[in-house]
């Protein structure tokens, strides 16, 4: 892999750059500034940084209070804790009360690998998407992460953003990263099948499409970084224009991207939709790549699933 910059580092860079001129930006951490790559922000902008200690409920409640008083609150904590320990604060204090809190779930999915299920957040898409008013974003690479945060800085609604722990392969380049807020990015077009992926699964989806296209299966890839609000039009176009859809997500098999895509497709334009996700079980011990390989969440596994969908 050429890229050595994790998405979380890009988040820190964007927030730091804007904090110079926008005094309303406040970053909060729960003893997580190191793992969130936000230590430089705390060092450079101490007046705009709040440490709450290992207390995720307090983290989100305080962020909501700051936002109620006009601040742009960015609360960063491991995705696992942020979306389960403080789930009710996300629901009541952020979404229900309408506060401008951006909830940054770091080391999301199974990023923490061998640390086990306590540290994995394979439920966060389902949980957060089910909250009325909560948006859910899983950017795929560092370039898209930058665009996403530039856009989030301009709005006033709460959102949950999940990012992984490790650097991920670039899907885009700095010069070529098409981005339109709340619209899926067409990574590549194709007429036979569509792979819809989010977060770290976009890169292997793109690689799978290259394998398939070489075999003569012209494969479209949609980067659905905006899991909620999902780009319904892009999903329907894929269902209408290609023969089958395969979804890929670093998430439990229920209530995530696959469920949402299947719901839309079955409603309006029934086509075969197959899902690739983590199992409904604690995942096997390993680092991210080992776990992905084990469950077929890699280029070869995704390509195989597309062939199956077309069979």
């Amino acid at each position: 892999m050429n890229n050595t910059i994790p998405n979380r580092q890009v988040i820190c860079e964007v927030l730091s750059a804007h904090a110079e001129t926008d005094r309303d930006i406040v970053v909060l951490c729960s003893d997580s500034r190191g793992s969130a790559s936000l230590a430089p922000f705390f060092k450079d902008h101490p007046g705009q940084a709040v440490e709450v200690g290992i207390a995720e409920q307090d983290l989100v409640g305080i962020a909501a209070g700051l936002a109620k008083a006009g601040k742009k609150a960015y609360a960063a904590s491991p995705a696992s804790f942020l979306t389960t320990r403080s789930y009710e604060q996300c629901k009541v204090d952020c979404a229900y009360s309408g506060t401008n809190v951006k909830l940054i779930g770091i080391s999301g999915g199974i990023s923490y690998g061998a640390l086990g299920m306590s540290h994995h957040s394979a439920q966060d898409i389902a949980a957060m998407s089910a909250i009325p008013g909560m948006r859910v974003y899983l950017p795929s690479d560092r370039h898209q992460t930058k665009h996403l945060f530039e856009a989030l800085l301009q709005d006033t609604q709460c959102a949950y953003i999940r990012t992984g722990r490790n650097p991920v392969e670039d899907v885009y380049s700095g010069a070529d990263c098409p981005f339109e807020m709340d619209h899926a990015t067409l990574v590549r077009d194709g007429r036979d099948a569509t792979i819809i992926a989010c977060g770290e699964m976009v890169s292997p989806a793109k690689a799978a499409a290259e394998i398939l296209t070489a075999e003569g299966i012209d494969t479209r890839v949609l980067d659905m970084y905006c899991v909620k609000p999902i780009d319904r039009a892009a999903v329907l176009a894929a269902a209408e224009e290609t023969h089958a859809i395969v979804t890929v997500e670093e998430h439990a098999p229920f209530g995530g991207l696959g469920s949402m895509v299947a719901q839309i497709v079955s409603e309006a334009c029934p086509k075969r939709v197959l899902n690739i996700a983590l199992p409904d079980a604690p995942v096997i011990t390993g680092n991210s790549q080992q776990v992905f390989d084990h469950y077929g969440m890699n280029a070869a596994g995704i390509a195989a699933r597309v062939r199956e969908a077309l069979a």
Binding site: G47, V60, G61, G65, K68, V92, D93
Partner: peptide, 22 residues
């Protein structure tokens, strides 16, 4: 702010007070 579920008010109030001081 909306409330109802208990134990939410004080952390939110801490945030409001921090913002006022900032």
């Amino acid at each position: 702010m909306n409330s109802g579920s208990l134990g939410h008010g004080l952390p939110v109030a801490v945030g409001l007070a921090l913002a006022a001081r900032m």
